[in-house]
Nucleic acid binder design. Structure first.
Lengths: 150, 150
DNA sequence: GGGTTATCGTTGGGGCGACCAACGAATCCG
DNA sequence: CGGATTCGTTGGTCGCCCCAACGATAACCC
């Protein structure tokens, strides 16, 4: 088994039993897995999230996107810039409210989204590989209730 | 369904149902709550984590601390510098291995730790306020199994 | 024993995500 | 009409993570 010098990497520090710590570690691993998977399509997590939200919401303003995904307006500008540059979304001035940009997914964007959604789902399957289906459902339920405020 | 202008703050975007996304949001809230609580004592999360680990592990090298807490050696230098400057830990050369620094908690450090631990626990209680005790235990169990690798 | 390999603390640089402050333009509302 | 609000945008900060390098020291192995 383990040799003499294998001082286990963890003391059962009090820290490690705190939900906030475990959430941080689990989130870091999830982020790493998803980011690595999406990199195969040259996409990043936030870009994929925005593209997915645009596909669901139809023509939508950047501010609405930011609210639904809790993304800072500043970051949203850069993300939509990238997606537009790559031809995945269109950004047209909203005639009804000239302050707004109507962001809409393109045909290329839908094709890209289908691939990145598959990659994201696979990464999440790997993330929760140690869980049964029922446990995965319960984890989602518990997290939803914890993450809600803001 | 609901009327046209009732844009609920969230479409049930596919993204929002992914464990990786929920973990990110929940971790962000946990980090915010804990950071705000610790700020009352002028401490930051990583500083508190390191101080707590030092208290548990006794005299310990920075490298060991970094491994148990998954903290980059570069960041560990800065953290131990701060803790030492504030008189919360001592950093003495290890006579057995002169490459190592033996980091040890001080009396002031233990006093500070008692207060920050209380604050951290309270923040975690608020974080999981929507959960029953049993659900909190199960969340910890599920997260532990997910966060484990690295 | 001596040469190679590995570890420790430290410094440097960089990337990425989250967050806050401010601004002009446009819109809404009383 | 005029004040308050929203939108997109620019600017900057902060925390976490990763990679590369270095001198000093220790461990390994022939």
């Amino acid at each position: 088994m383990s040799d003499l010098h294998d001082h286990h990497p963890y003391a059962p520090s009090r820290i490690r039993a705190l939900p906030s710590w475990l959430l941080g570690r689990a989130a870091a691993r999830g982020h790493r897995l998803v980011a690595e998977a999406l990199a195969a399509e040259g996409m990043r997590m936030m870009h994929h999230a925005v593209l997915s939200a645009v596909a669901e919401l139809g023509p939508v303003s950047q501010a609405d996107l930011g609210r639904t995904l809790s993304i800072d307006p500043k970051d949203m500008v850069a993300i939509v810039n990238d997606l537009q540059r790559d031809g995945l979304v269109t950004r047209t001035p909203d005639p009804k409210d000239r302050r707004k940009n109507a962001v809409e997914i393109s045909a290329d964007g839908e094709r890209r989204l289908r691939r990145t959604q598959k990659l994201g789902d696979e990464a999440n399957a790997e993330l929760t590989a140690a869980l049964t289906g029922a446990e995965r459902e319960q984890l989602i339920d518990l997290l939803t209730r914890i993450a809600l405020p803001q």
